[in-house]
Design a protein around this nucleic acid. Structure first.
Lengths: 327, 327
DNA sequence: CGTTACAGTGTAAACGATTACATTAATTAT
DNA sequence: ATAATTAATGTAATCGTTTACACTGTAACG
């Protein structure tokens, strides 16, 4: 691969002129410009990003931290991030933490090593202390999950209100016995959504039994099944279930189908996220849609702003209730 | 962030010694080593990957080209790639092409710019001419899809045989009228799987009507539904369907359910890939499992070998029939 | 004791770009 | 005609590493 020196030599100019042509073509004289262009063509020259990055001490790389790539919730967010990043000359380094602190450390080091210019974190299990420390020194934004007390800016939705709307919908169509499949309450969103669930019940004068709130270990399909199995075995069986993620809801659907009961006649189910697959289940899943693409694109924009020294405030986006067959 | 110079100064040694300590601690004397260690601690020093990369002209970054991150087929492959890559000190740049040549060009440029050391391509629609050209100059391997006539090494399965096994399974459980939902035959795997389908039928003396092979435009859920709708409207309705991807099969399931027919009693369905979701459908999907993690990890190993100048041969891995409720 | 070998370290040149500053030539103003 | 301004280009330092080569001092050997 040709270097800038070879181009300069061939075009009979200095490397500075070639560099100027590359970064700001207008300031080099027309005749020179043509010679440089020709040399670049002839040598099939491409500037080395390595050299440029070193000199400018920037990498134009953004780290995106997700717990797991196989969770479809993140795919649309990532699309949003990627489109915005590319548009502004950045590339993204998609990093799975598997919620594993040592994996996480590898990626945090990448930014200390200046291999990346900023981080978008979507991992709710991330070590808060580390994260805050990184955020002090380097550009960082949180997407979807965030730290309540922290000073790190974020993009998210109003989880309490969204859950409230979900449960309100169930109440509106006549349900009185409403259960919840929640994930571990160490996650902020889990706590908030539970509050929304409780507020909707209380507001309508409905009772909530502790047994009707099942807490899962993780967000996998099997946990959803297990949760539903448990709820079906209650003394008083709920007639509707609000699950805090579509995958959990799909697990619940599966379990209901397996016991010969029918959705929505016997039990109504509502999920959360509106992942692609929520549309492919039998029956199709009513869910709360998060504006995932927008969340991604806004966090990317926010991060790029931070990198260039601008300050930006946290953002809370709107959600939407999508009514389908399961309610 | 401290630089190697500051460390050197603090430890009262030359930068060369610090660098030696970093790359090969054993060759520096114990007393010196301790001083350097202390200085590194004190200054909280992390070597700049930028500087190192420039000097060594390597980036330790691997490009992974996939058509779309939302296709769950790729997630396990990516896990395999990532684990192997990290183990060997590489990071991956996960790039979606959306099967869009201009997007592709961006990523090909990344390697020309020396921002990446090699490419793993999983995009079957990739422009073959460009790909071959890149492969001539830079390390590149293909995963899953490959170029029959090309000289680019690849990791894949025996698609013809896998399809043959799938159809044989349907025949074995008594089906005689077997349809196929294929994707566009511009893809090699589509042509090969069709051959396997035909061979199995022929071998058992079963007839195949052209109308029983439906070709979809893409691999989306809706295409599967549409395909199944079409097959259900045939004069002679098939009793079993082989779909070349799980998502298509899930679409088919949905359509069958929607018309009030039952799987597998009325129609049996078999898919291909064994994505996570194939387990969550109603009923669960019989499918051909590809060793996705292994495919990923072997392609990564293969690419890293190529980068370090070793030659490696293409690999064909084993598939497996996974029998579940839909047959 | 003189030579050789080697371990440990330093010096300085790379890697490939960008950019402050200096220089020259051309244009405009007085 | 001379001075001042501007446009175009070149020179060389710089970013943070690695590494070939040179050097020094100590140990081993005959």
């Amino acid at each position: 691969m040709a270097t800038i020196q070879e181009v300069a030599q061939k075009a009979k100019v200095s490397v500075a002129t070639v560099s100027r042509y590359l970064n700001n073509p207008d300031i080099v004289a027309k005749a020179t410009r043509l010679r440089v262009e020709e040399a670049i063509q002839d040598l099939n020259y491409e500037p080395s990003i390595l050299g440029r990055n070193l000199r400018k001490s920037e990498s134009k790389l953004l780290i995106v931290l997700i717990p797991s790539i196989s969770n479809p919730f993140y795919t649309e967010i990532i699309n949003g991030i990627e489109d915005t990043a590319i548009e502004q000359g950045y590339n993204i380094l998609l990093c799975q933490t598997d919620s594993n602190p040592s994996r996480e450390a590898i990626y945090f080091n990448l930014i200390r090593n200046q291999l990346a210019d900023g981080i978008i974190s979507m991992d709710p299990t991330v070590n808060r202390k580390n994260l805050t420390e990184i955020a002090k020194e380097y550009p960082l934004v949180q997407c979807s999950e965030y730290d309540e007390e922290g000073i790190i800016s974020y993009v998210t939705i109003n989880n309490e209100l969204a859950a409230y709307h979900a449960v309100k919908h169930l109440i509106k169509i006549g349900h009185k016995k409403i259960a919840m499949i929640n994930s571990n309450e160490k996650f902020l969103y889990a706590r908030e959504r539970k509050q929304g669930y409780e507020r909707a019940l209380k507001e309508s004068g409905l009772s909530s039994y502790p047994d009707w709130v099942y807490t899962t270990d993780n967000l996998e399909f099997d946990s959803g099944r297990l949760a539903m199995k448990n709820l079906l075995n209650q003394d008083i069986r709920p007639t509707a279930v609000f699950a805090v993620s579509d995958i959990l809801a799909i697990g619940a659907l599966k379990e209901i189908n397996a016991t010969g009961l029918h959705v929505p006649e016997d039990i109504a189910v509502i999920g959360f996220d509106k992942i692609n697959f929520s549309n492919m289940t039998y029956p199709t899943l009513t869910t709360i849609a998060q504006p995932m693409y927008q969340m991604g694109s806004m966090s990317a924009q926010m991060l790029i702003n931070k990198i260039s020294g601008k300050r930006t405030d946290s953002i809370i986006l709107d959600h939407e209730l999508v009514i389908r067959e399961s309610t």
